Amino acid sequence: MSQEMLEAGPQSARILSVFDFDGTLTRRDSFVPFLRFAFGNGFFARRMLRMIWPSLRYLGRRISRDELKAQLIQTFLAGVKEQWVAQKAVAFKSQAWARLMRPQGVISVEQELASGAEVTICSASPALVLKPFAEQLGIKLIGTELEVIDGVLTGRISGDNCRCEAKVLRLEAVYGVLTQYRMRAWGDTRGDHELLAAAQDAHWRHFHPAWQRGRLRVEKIYGPVTPATSKESAATTVGGLPRNDDRKGG
């Protein structure tokens, strides 16, 4: 069997289609707007003041992106009832869907489902917040899990933030060895590189306007460095990576 055939996946393999959420299926980040919606402008503004110093430390490279996110979750969600957040997430989905979701992204999800593929979101945003979006799309969800004790959020992440290599590990935990699938993936930030590298068919900023797409080169996890394997994504998945690529959760 040739290297090209190995990289394409087993000939009779089931399709696994994996979508990043923030910035890929949506026009912008969803978690911070959710916090503003859930807590109201006044409370949101007061709590965001607490994030100034952690944000400055992050910009100065004194803490990591994961540590900054952990601080944001601690600041807003420690001691909050899980059920209350879940209810606010449902309301946020209803209020934000039309302006937040990319129409072509929604259509692509529908097309993947119609093709018989196994379809899932794989996102760094909290699964508790994204669950209503995944349910409306009719697909599965893998996201960052929040620690809950006796129905109350502790403000801590359970396990790892679901970005970078953690996305691949979480997918493997749910679906098994990924080489048994013909895997398709859509992403738009540095947090999606490992996900895209694991896919035989990778789509970089596929639903963005052309001027936002940039160019990307990733090293394939299950093979050597190659350009995109599909004609429609080839123009946007080779070349250098934009430096401003990591502004969202991934």
Rank of each mutant, 00 (worst) to 15 (best):
E4P: 00
L6M: 13
A8I: 00
P10M: 11
P10V: 01
S12M: 08
R14S: 12
I15C: 13
S17R: 05
D20G: 03
G23A: 09
G23K: 04
T24H: 04
L25F: 09
L25A: 02
T26S: 09
R28G: 11
D29W: 11
D29A: 12
F31E: 03
V32L: 13
P33D: 13
P33E: 14
F39P: 01
F39A: 04
F39T: 06
G40F: 09
N41H: 14
R47V: 07
L49Y: 06
R50D: 11
M51S: 04
P54W: 13
S55W: 11
L56D: 10
L56S: 11
R62S: 09
I63V: 13
K69S: 10
I73H: 00
T75G: 02
T75I: 08
F76P: 00
L77H: 03
L77M: 12
K81P: 03
K81V: 00
E82Y: 10
Q83L: 14
W84E: 13
W84S: 08
V85N: 01
A86W: 09
K93V: 00
S94M: 12
A98I: 08
L100F: 11
M101K: 06
M101L: 14
Q104L: 13
S108H: 12
V109N: 01
Q111G: 04
L113C: 09
A114I: 03
A114Y: 07
G116W: 08
G116H: 03
A117C: 01
V119P: 02
C122G: 00
A124I: 02
A124V: 04
S125C: 07
P126C: 11
A127Q: 11
L128F: 04
A134P: 00
E135V: 06
Q136A: 15
L137W: 03
L137H: 06
G138V: 08
L141R: 02
T144P: 06
T144E: 04
L146V: 05
E147P: 03
E147D: 09
I149D: 10
D150P: 05
V152S: 04
L153D: 03
T154P: 01
R156E: 15
R156V: 12
I157E: 07
S158Y: 10
G159V: 07
C162G: 02
C164G: 05
E165Q: 15
E165F: 13
K167S: 08
R170D: 10
R170I: 02
A173V: 01
V174S: 07
L178W: 03
Q180D: 10
Q180T: 08
R184V: 10
A185I: 02
W186F: 13
W186C: 02
G187Q: 01
D188W: 03
L195R: 00
L196Y: 09
Q200N: 11
A202P: 11
H206W: 07
W211V: 10
W211E: 15
W211K: 11
R215L: 11
L216D: 04
V218M: 07
E219N: 13
I221P: 01
Y222T: 01
P224F: 06
V225P: 11
T229K: 15
K231Q: 14
K231V: 15
S233Q: 01
A235K: 09
A235V: 08
T236L: 06
T236S: 14
T236W: 13
T237R: 06
T237V: 15
V238Q: 15
G240R: 09
G240K: 10
P242D: 15
N244A: 12
N244W: 15
D245V: 13
D246T: 09
R247A: 15
K248E: 15
G250C: 10
